[in-house]
């Protein structure tokens, strides 16, 4: 297994390299650059600024320069728009996003997985219909509706909760709830589907026939197989959650990373955006690896793949 992890990490480096290359040329193909909207600057000042960041060179040369700086100096460059080091900007916005993402994930798992398991067990009962209805509502009502609703009906009523801001630990609650609702719904539905697949298997019937207690059957015989699709989904979902969400960050004024993804694109801030892409790619590589390992640990039939 150590060899497997080592191999995957090596492959991960390759993934990041390919990702960086594709993204660099895609971003460079965007019309305009970081200084297009600066109307006040004179033509000469513009040229000077572009030269300062190397944006006046041909794209392949820019790419080579970026790569050299990244590999030799571990330097992500300076954001032309914000005039700050990209690594500094990312370091600032990284903790809020991770904290928010972890909490949202926690909420999603605590709500979603039990709902899914019990709906599968009690398939086609009122509990099933009710919880799946709830899950569907979680998917229908996007963050830009849940957020304001929570602000209006909870934050305004409960004195301990603020409408927006990011100072005390309590401020995490509402944005995490908003962010976690959709993944909770996905988890519930996926878990229910995976569990139904397993509950029909012969060995589960055998377990019932042996007279095992119901909870033991669920815990020891079905959960590991039934949660397989859930875990396959969790890897990328987790990466998505902790790389920040623009909508939730905007609504609740969270100083996270999601806005840099969007603003980096809108402002054509190539170095900032590449920094975000690299960070997100890194998360995807690591979390997909973790998710694959957990799947193999849960299902003996997958262990050959390790």
């Amino acid at each position: 297994m150590l060899r497997f992890i080592f191999q995957r990490l090596l492959q991960g480096l390759l993934v990041l390299f390919v990702l960086l290359t594709i993204s660099f040329f895609l971003i460079s193909a965007l019309p305009g650059d970081a200084f297009v909207k600066e109307k006040k600057m004179s033509e000469e000042a513009l040229q000077e600024q572009r030269a300062r960041f190397g944006l006046d060179r041909p794209v392949p040369l820019q790419y080579a320069m970026y790569l050299k700086r990244l590999i030799v100096n571990q330097d992500l460059g300076i954001s032309p728009k914000k005039n700050r080091e990209v690594s500094y900007i990312l370091k600032q916005s990284f903790p809020p996003s991770v904290i928010l993402g972890l909490n949202a994930l926690f909420i999603a798992c605590v709500i979603g997985i039990p709902l899914g398991v019990f709906s599968a067990v009690k398939k086609n009962t009122w509990f099933d219909y009710f919880s799946m209805g709830f899950a569907m509502i979680g998917i229908c009502v996007a963050a830009f509706i849940v957020g304001p609703l929570l602000q209006t009906f909870i934050a305004m009523k409960v004195p301990a909760l603020k409408v927006a801001g990011w100072e005390t630990p309590l401020d995490i609650l509402l944005p995490a709830l908003t962010l976690g609702l959709a993944p909770a719904a996905y988890l519930a539905r996926l878990t229910r589907g995976g569990m139904l697949e397993i509950l029909n298997q012969d060995y589960v019937r055998t377990a019932y026939a042996k007279g095992l207690p119901f909870l033991t059957i669920i815990r020891r015989h079905t959960l590991r197989g039934g949660l397989l699709p859930t875990v396959a989904f969790l890897g990328p979902a987790f990466a998505g959650l902790i790389s920040g969400s623009f909508v939730v960050e905007t609504i609740f004024q969270v100083p996270g990373m999601g806005r840099h993804f969007i603003n980096g694109t809108v402002d054509r801030d190539i170095f900032l955006l590449l920094g975000c892409v690299l960070y997100y790619g890194f998360l995807i590589v690591i979390l997909n690896l973790v998710s694959d390992i957990i799947q193999a640990l849960m299902n003996p039939r997958l262990r050959d793949s390790l």
Partner: peptide, 15 residues
């Protein structure tokens, strides 16, 4: 599967 990893992280808005 590594190609899938790459595609996950491609900046969607740029595309």
């Amino acid at each position: 599967m590594r190609l899938v990893d790459v595609l996950y992280a491609i900046p969607f808005l740029v595309l």
